[in-house]
Amino acid sequence: MQIKRSLERIPGGMMVVPLLLGALINTFAPDILRIGNFTQALFVDSAGALIALFLLCAGAQINLRNIGPALGKGTTLLAVKWIVGAGVGLLAYMLAGTSGLFLGMVPLAIIAAMTNSNGGLYVAIVGQYGTAEDRAAYSVLALNDGPFLTMVALSIFGAMGFVDGLFSIVSFISVLLPVVVGMILGNLDEDMRDFLGRGSAMLIPFFAFALGMGIDFGAIIEGGLAGIVIGIMTTLFTGTAGYLVFRALKWNPIVGAAEGSTAGNAVATPLAIAAANPAFHAVAQLATVQVAASTVTTAILLPLYISFLVSRGGFTETAEDPAAS
């Protein structure tokens, strides 16, 4: 059987197929791999560790002489994601009815979902289509984890004020550190850079499957049509905006589109905001299930959207990784 070759015929197949397989198993037979020991450690609980190792390997490919582009791309991704998410959320607030909803969607859920991206999906996509500097850009993009940028968006148009304690610099450092360790190793020893570079591609299907084991298709049903619409908007609006901005800047546009998702930790954002401002208590529960539905929707839709963009010629593979030179 030519499993690897078959997966590679599908755009993004080394990430998409394992992720959807994991999601199917988690939805219909969630306990089949949760039997403890090595099986559960590898197939269920490994996503965080494998992504961290992937980032370390990616960091090792970065030459310190070329670190500027990684910071530039990460900052651009962060800005585009936030501007689009905050802008759509503001429009929803302006058009919301007396119930506080816009077409059944909670504006708070829109902002939380659209300003917070799934780092695992981003890493998996750029692991196949990007360079080392594209992967390293995630260390900046990780700043949108948690409710901080949602709170900033709400404060800017007067929905609430700043509240201390909703953003932890430790969380950001914990994402950045594996990249830094890999970068140090790779710049101290060329052989170590080569050694770690050979391992990164192998990790993608394994952490993609583990990410899938955290997805339950039932969340789409619970969040209803409104949550699905938020997920679709997240992928099409933020993903397309990133694609267009990166193409305009002569960067790989697929990397720009790779941030068109909602992170799982965004599910906790509405309740965190409600804890900081009681005015949001009435909509916090509904917003939570809508963000959860958006998380699942984007986890399915974004890889398919990336495959569509690639099939339409949106990606041209470079012969050499400039960050490794």
Rank of each mutant, 00 (worst) to 15 (best):
I51A: 13
F280N: 06
A159N: 08
L143C: 09
L143A: 08
A29K: 07
Q61E: 11
R198D: 13
P278Y: 05
A41T: 15
M213T: 12
A319V: 14
G313M: 09
D31W: 05
M14F: 07
G314C: 13
P11I: 07
V152D: 01
A109W: 04
Y93S: 14
L42W: 11
N252S: 07
A52C: 12
I232G: 03
I173D: 02
M192H: 04
A299G: 09
Q290A: 00
I51S: 10
F38A: 13
A70P: 00
V170L: 04
G212Y: 08
A258N: 01
T131Q: 10
A272M: 10
L188W: 13
A274D: 01
S174N: 10
I83L: 15
V152Y: 03
L108P: 03
P107M: 04
G12F: 10
A137R: 01
T316M: 15
S171A: 13
L271Q: 13
D145C: 08
A319R: 15
F315P: 04
L225Y: 09
I3L: 14
V291L: 04
D45H: 11
I169V: 12
A92W: 04
G100P: 06
I10W: 09
V84T: 07
A287S: 06
M151R: 06
T298L: 01
L24C: 13
S311C: 13
Q285W: 01
L225R: 04
L121T: 14
L302R: 11
A323W: 13
L286D: 07
S117E: 08
F280P: 09
L286Q: 09
A23Y: 06
V44Q: 05
D45V: 04
A201V: 13
G119L: 14
T318P: 10
M15E: 12
A282H: 08
I111A: 08
V16M: 15
L225P: 01
V44K: 05
G197L: 08
A23G: 10
M114T: 10
V152F: 04
V123C: 15
G256Q: 03
F167L: 06
T27C: 01
L211F: 06
A92S: 12
E8G: 09
L154G: 07
F206E: 13
N63T: 11
L177P: 00
T238Y: 02
F102Q: 03
I83A: 15
N277R: 05
T235G: 05
A284G: 01
V163E: 08
T316N: 07
K81P: 00
L33H: 09
D194S: 12
K250I: 02
V17M: 13
G242K: 03
L301Q: 02
T115Y: 07
L24N: 02
T115Q: 12
G74F: 04
M233H: 00
A323S: 11
L121G: 14
F280G: 01
I62A: 03
P178K: 08
G218C: 05
V181R: 05
